[in-house]
């Protein structure tokens, strides 16, 4: 019965692996830089879930603190990345990462 099932860390790790894979696949498939950033967020969330699941398994608060730092770094990364996207798209209004492969003005 599903109600009596005890959820061990392997369930969370499987979910984390699935989320990470979906994020990595989206990063490879999509060509819109904004959606690619969202996929990076998906992968970071999967890593966070694994961190907290391991932390609970070990009985250690270090997992939660690592997630806190990952959150801060993710926020900084999104801010800088979106600023770069805005700066690039002002010059090239077409939104696709294939067009900024030249890296010149």
């Amino acid at each position: 019965m599903i109600l009596g099932l005890s959820i061990g860390p392997e369930y969370y790790l499987a979910l984390s692996a699935l989320l990470f894979t979906i994020g990595a696949g989206g990063l490879l498939i999509r060509r819109n830089p904004l959606v690619m950033f969202m996929c990076i967020e998906l992968m970071l969330n999967a890593a966070n879930l694994a961190f907290i699941s391991f932390g609970k398994e070990m009985g250690d608060l270090g997992g939660q603190l690592s997630v806190l730092f990952v959150l801060v770094v993710a926020a900084a990364e999104v801010v800088i990345g979106l600023a770069i996207v805005v700066a690039v798209m002002r010059r090239r209004p077409k939104a696709s990462v294939d067009e900024v492969s030249v890296l010149r003005g």
């Binding site: 499987a14 692996a17 699935l18 894979t21 990595a24």
Partner: peptide, 16 residues
């Protein structure tokens, strides 16, 4: 993508 999926999922499930 299929490679990444197989690797991540398989390794983690196997270890877990």
């Amino acid at each position: 993508l299929a490679l990444v999926a197989l690797l991540t999922f398989g390794v983690l499930i196997g270890v877990a």
